[in-house]
Write a protein that binds this DNA or RNA. Structure first.
Lengths: 150, 150
DNA sequence: TTCTGTGCAAATGATTTGCAGCCAG
DNA sequence: CTGGCTGCAAATCATTTGCACAGAA
């Protein structure tokens, strides 16, 4: 309880880069900082726009490269909602959650159920798998859309 | 218990097309049939290859169009595993299951746990959602790959 | 200094679309 | 017949990559 578990994302990045013999550049630092500042899942394009406001000289290829880097460093998780764009969500700071998606309005609510989490792990183990992670989406109609449909 | 709930996919398609004033073509019938015959999730390209074996004159644009059509008709569901390809899975036929995916070899095992299913429904309801369906992927390393890594 | 990273633009690869002929209704 | 459908190829769009210069170690 006393231990500080939340590693600063920039530190995680630094450590990862050092381990890989890669360099910590201003661009990478900036991109990671903006990504975590927003603390929201977003597309490469959205992050590019954010970063661009701070430093307009950054190219979008750099954002794509940094996003892939964060994925490898386990700082971001890759998701896909709709059909065309890849969404990334921050993955440190300890905020794992699953998603509840409204099929009507597209609204997404992050959810977490410890009981389900535990069963998921057990289920994987029963089948001889060493569980690493999972992804769960629950679809339904949200309260508002149910009312709107009346 | 006595009722026959399993609608034939071709019938669902026919009904959907009729409602939309669209036409039931041989291509569409063939594509739907092959998709359900395999009863596996697959990419547009994979389905194209299957269909092509039966009728080599079919173009892949037609497969893409049919897949989007099936998605709209709720006959298929759109998924994404990795980064680049869209996967579709049959959505009628009543064989719901979740997936256990090996991150090493890519092997996929269908799984189903009633307890989890029930909790999923409950979780959605707690948040005011009327649950319609869900999608769950458990990632891990399968037994064989664990041995291979030793 | 020495590589690795960056920005730019061109390349790629999955999916979509325009068009002229085809076919189900 | 007729408007929707198909096959083909060209067009798109997100993402990746090659290259020459720039900057961290």
């Amino acid at each position: 309880m006393a231990q500080k578990n939340k590693l600063n994302p920039e530190d995680v990045l630094t450590a990862y880069l050092a381990k890989k013999g890669m360099k910590l550049t201003n661009q990478r630092r900036l991109i990671v900082r903006e990504f975590y500042k927003a603390d929201e899942h977003m597309s490469a394009e959205e992050l590019y726009q954010l970063v661009r406001k701070v430093d307009p000289s950054i190219g979008q290829a750099t954002v794509y490269r940094a996003l892939n880097l964060m994925r490898d460093a386990k700082l971001a998780r890759e998701l896909r909602f709709g059909t065309d764009v890849t969404i990334f969500e921050p993955h440190a700071g300890g905020t794992h959650h699953d998603h509840l998606v409204c099929e009507e309005c597209g609204k997404t609510v992050p959810v977490l159920d410890e009981q389900i989490e535990a069963l998921q792990t057990k289920l994987a183990e029963i089948h001889g798998f060493k569980p690493t992670s999972h992804r769960m989406y629950l679809y339904g109609i949200c309260g508002e859309c149910q009312k709107a449909a009346e």
